[in-house]
Amino acid sequence: MKNLRGTGLKEKDFEREFTVYYKPQLEYRWDTGLAIGKFLEGLRDGKLFGKKCNKCKRILFPPRAFCERCFVDTDEWIEVKDTGTINTYSLCYITWDMKQLKDPQIPAVIEIDGSSGGFLHIAKIDPKQIKIGMKVQAIWKRAGERTGSITDIKYFVAGEE
C-alpha cells in the first residue's frame, strides 16, 4: 500500500502538458410529452394543473401520464392552487459552473395547495425571513409575456399564513 500510483497535476501544469481539447455539439429537442405538454399550456394561461390517480388518490403535480406507484394511467385533470408551503429551501451562492453569486438564488421544493406533491421553483424571500413551513404565493409573468414555460411563474413570495 506504500507506493500507490497516480500523478497529480496543478491547473497551471496544463500550460506545458500535452492535452487535447474537445467541445462536442450536443443540441437536443426534447418532446414535452402528454402530461407536461398540457401542464405548459396551463402555465401559459396562468393556471396550474395536476393529474389525479384514481387508484391511490394522489393528485400528481407536476402532472404525469402515469402513476409510478400504481402503474396505471392517471385519470382526470385537476386545477390546483398557485399557493403552497415551503418543504425545503437553500440559499445558493454559486452557479453550476462555480461562478459566485452575491445575492443567493433560493431554490425551494414547494408543496402546492390542492396537490399531493411538491415541485422545484425559486423563492424570492428575504434570506433572514425564509423558513421551512412558510406559506408562499406564485408571482406570474403578465398574460402576454407567458410562453408556456416553468418560468411563466417568475418566483414565489411569502403568502398569507
Binding site: T7, L9, F14, E17, F18, T19, V20, Y21, Y22, K23, P24, L26, E27, Y28, R29, W30, D31, T32, G37, L40, E41, R44, T147, G148, S149, T151
Partner: peptide
C-alpha cells in the same frame, strides 16, 4: 436558456454545455 419551444408546446430545445480537456497520459507524453 431553455425557452426555444414551439407554439404548440410539444418540444423544448436545449444543450448540454460540456467540454473536455484530455491529458495524453504517461505513455502519451
Amino acid at each position: 436558456e431553455l425557452k426555444n419551444h414551439n407554439d404548440k408546446l410539444t418540444f423544448f430545445s436545449g444543450n448540454i454545455p460540456l467540454e473536455s480537456l484530455y491529458t495524453v497520459g504517461i505513455a502519451g507524453d
